[in-house]
Simulated assay, not measured.
Amino acid sequence: MESVGSGLAAIDWNDDRADVYLSRPDKRNAMTVPLMDDLVAAFERVDADGDVRVATLLGEGPVFCAGMDLEMMRDRVEPDAEIDRNKFPDVLEAIEETRQPVVAGIKRAAPAGAFELTLPCDFRIIGRNAKYGLLEVALGTFPHGGGTQRLPRLVGLSNAKEIVLSGEFVDPEEAADMGLVHEVVDTDAVDERAKALADDLCENAPLGLRKGKQALNAAFDMPLERGLEYERRLGHELDDTRDYREGFEARLEGREPEFCGE
């Protein structure tokens, strides 16, 4: 595993798959400014690597992420505290704008900011006993790292209001029923299942994965007519690619395609 930046995030390169780890296990991977900087750097590296087809976001050690570091959050409320309030949004944007699909593995805990950290990921695998929810209204504030904006797009406004305004954990099975997470597994199987899903996705054409993600991410940002036009434009960009021809030739010949991202 290769450390990134200050060493609070790491990347494990596995052929077509890159596993990005929050690497602060002694603090349950609670997020600090250096850790957030490292995560941005990690996903920028993944995005720039043309050989990576799919990435995962995992927590090193027994816990995915305990949320924001409480000492950091206490210090930031001091009147003279110098705070860069863009750090966390930068992390979420880096994940969201990574060209490759990202699979989050949520084991044991992902409260508050950690919950929001999973929202820009494209797939979420969760342990059946995970503590997963937005608790901010019980702490004198409300989730404003994307929770009120990304969450309704995933589960609808009514479900999002229940999650945000109750300040309670969401049962993993209920999270799956509302489409918030994609699969509930035993706690000890979370990371391996996230990697297995990523490997399954890696079997598909990398350019198709990237363009498909790009089109889907734009779906709520424009009217339907413009969205359809954008979708067609992205699709036509692949018409003359080697992988597009390979996909159809392999299907006609009854064999597995050999995609190369060209």
Rank of each mutant, 00 (worst) to 15 (best):
A109G: 00
V102M: 10
E116A: 14
N129P: 05
V103L: 11
A94N: 09
A110Q: 01
N129L: 04
P111E: 02
G113L: 09
A112K: 00
R108P: 00
E136P: 00
E96Y: 06
P120T: 12
L119D: 08
I106D: 10
L92V: 10
F123N: 03
P111V: 09
V103P: 02
A110G: 07
E136S: 07
T118D: 05
L92I: 13
P111Q: 06
N129E: 15
R85Q: 02
Y132H: 11
D84R: 09
G113W: 03
G127S: 10
V102S: 05
V137K: 12
V91L: 10
I106S: 13
E116Y: 08
N129Q: 14
C121V: 05
F88G: 02
V102Q: 03
Q100R: 11
R124E: 12
F88E: 05
R108Y: 14
E136A: 15
R124P: 09
I126F: 12
R108E: 15
K131N: 11
Y132F: 15
R85S: 02
Y132I: 03
D84G: 12
K107W: 14
Y132C: 02
L117A: 13
F123S: 02
P111S: 08
P89L: 03
G127M: 06
K131T: 09
Q100T: 12
R108S: 11
R99I: 07
V103Y: 12
P111G: 05
G113Y: 08
E116S: 13
L92T: 15
L135R: 00
L134Y: 00
L119P: 07
D90H: 07
Q100Y: 00
G113M: 14
F115R: 11
D90A: 15
